[in-house]
Write a protein that binds this DNA or RNA. Structure first.
Lengths: 337, 337
DNA sequence: CTGTTAGCGCGTTCAC
DNA sequence: GTGAACGCGCTAACAG
């Protein structure tokens, strides 16, 4: 015979309270059908017995769970942590817990995670971005579980989507650069294909500049390190070779590294060189020179995504995806030429 | 009758393969007792049926799970993300998934999380720090589930502990300050009781300075914002009032904010004022002036903790807790007086 | 308001 | 090497 766990079961509580298992179940879940007197008594007994419900049994019985599975590219760099916080707080209030994994930007890792997630019968699954392994898409489309794609935007989501249009963001950056009169912008990013949202932003900048006959936009893609050092080395590389009059960075972290590189090289901002970041992090707010950047609605995105998902879980119709607005922040690291 | 889920069950795979459920179960789990031929066939059928095992049923049957529950104070600021990464990668390899929650430094939130975790029959539970709600401790001590306390160090852990001695870290900082000849150190932290590890470090500094008759150490505790702005405002406050010759910060993030505040006030580092951080983040590595700080072994801590826990799960004896070593990094933001 | 019955999907046990 | 029976702890459905 199998050794059952030592923990108190609902049966033990029922026995001690002289009621049936179902009454205990109802009392503990707070559903109707139990007199207040009995309920109070049952709750007390459960406490003294240190009774902890078994979620596995519950999930098995009801064929779902209150787990929400989340896939993030990385925990590094606050951005996803902020989106995550918005989501988690919203889910938490609704009684859902989050199971999180990071893919480090690998579609295969994401697929594995989704497979594993599926085995938990989660209430919903959240993926970052819209670029997935074909099998991930197939799996999720075949499943009845609500899916949210966040951070990026697409008109053809797996299910729900709440994000921003990174190509548009790039165009906004490009517009500003053009209006300032920058002639030779450059870009610092991570290795090719690592972050397709960053690539989309770069494309946005290119779209603005391509008809101006200024030649291709130089792009530095230093080997992956921390964002600060990547930005630092990328900027050094561009300053020493391409000599652009503007450097756009994948994000504010890198832009900060870039600013440090400029200080190192004695390059004066914004006189000798313009600098543009992305995200509008708190980091930027303490810098002596306000960074020109784009504020991304990270918290809002998380909250909105979670709300939509909760509505979807509860069977409410959800509006088709619309890209969230961003705010361009003109700072002191760019200026008219 | 209840609607059973539409997903393929092990039974469906068995029917299609003309074998019993048990044979499928064995084949899928890779245990002995199935001929290679049948196994291959079963795996193929499972794939075509898009069969996903039900972890809830499995966990219910075997009375445990491959989930590891983790409690972190916050995702903000890389530090815990780095510890987490070390742990997760180690667990991942061993086939465990992590369920994470953040407490935002609230013991009550931690207790709630532990209660919820317990209901999942996790393979292990990891808490940050050694300061918990009494009921959290009682619950976990009463449970057979292995527990790891990380980041902080104690000689009286709930179960396992891998961390650093924050009081010692403070003493190291104090020693260095003393050797440099600083007379009136100050400290920038978060509101009282928010982060008890930071308080312990402050105590370490005090322990070094208390017999020197220099009066109490001024402490700025600005309202909570991002670490950067907290450091910034804390530094401004101290510069404008207490006029210390050294400011120690809760961490590097705050120290960076503080450096920006100094620039703002025209205070020259390290001539007018010394600055010391904590953690040795990558951020510090791109600064024009190397920050004096203490390197904390965050990744190592995560990996070591996870390994110890895995050993514990597998019934191997684990060494009693020893505080992990830290490395003092003398930088250019402090100098002999 | 309360109890009884019948599973949820899988793994252990033991028999063949 | 393979299969049948039973139970893990809980809840939906139905009676009373």
């Amino acid at each position: 015979m199998r050794a059952r766990s030592k923990n108190a079961r609902i049966e033990d509580v029922a026995a001690k309270a002289n009621v049936s298992i179902m009454t205990v179940s109802r009392a503990l879940r707070g559903v109707d059908g139990v007199s207040e007197k009995k309920r109070a008594e049952i709750l007390k007994i459960a406490r003294t017995l240190k009774y902890v419900p078994n979620s596995n049994a519950r999930s098995l019985a009801v064929a779902n769970s209150n787990l929400v599975g989340i896939s993030l590219p990385t925990f590094a760099g606050e951005v996803f942590a902020e989106i995550l916080n918005g989501m988690r707080q919203t889910f938490e209030k609704a009684g859902y817990s989050s199971v999180i994994d990071t893919t480090e930007y690998s579609r295969d890792a994401e697929l594995n995670w989704v497979r594993r997630l599926l085995s938990w019968q989660p209430a919903a699954i959240i993926l970052t971005g819209v670029d997935h392994h074909p099998e991930t898409i197939a799996l999720l489309k075949a499943s009845p579980i609500p899916v949210l794609e966040i951070w990026d935007h697409t008109n053809d989501p797996i299910d729900l989507c709440v994000g921003i249009d990174h190509f548009e963001a790039g165009k906004t950056i490009g517009q500003h650069a053009l209006e300032c009169g920058y002639k030779s912008p450059a870009f610092v990013s991570t290795p090719k294909g690592h972050d397709i949202r960053a690539d989309a932003r770069l494309e946005g900048i290119r779209a603005v500049y391509q008809n101006l006959g200024g030649g291709p936009i130089p792009v530095a893609r230093p080997p992956l390190q921390s964002a600060f050092t990547t930005g630092y080395h990328g900027a050094l590389e561009l300053i020493d070779t391409a000599q652009p009059d503007l450097i756009c960075f994948l994000n504010d972290h890198m832009a900060f590294g870039g600013l440090m590189a400029c200080e190192r090289r004695g390059v004066s901002i914004p006189d000798d060189l313009g600098v543009i970041g992305f995200n509008a992090l708190d980091l930027a707010s303490v810098l002596p020179k306000k960074l020109t950047t784009i504020r991304t609605p990270r918290r809002l995105m998380g909250v909105t995504g979670a709300r939509n998902l909760l509505a979807r879980i509860n069977g409410v119709k959800v509006d088709p995806p619309a890209a969230l607005p961003m705010e361009f922040i003109p700072g002191e690291t760019t200026s008219p030429r």
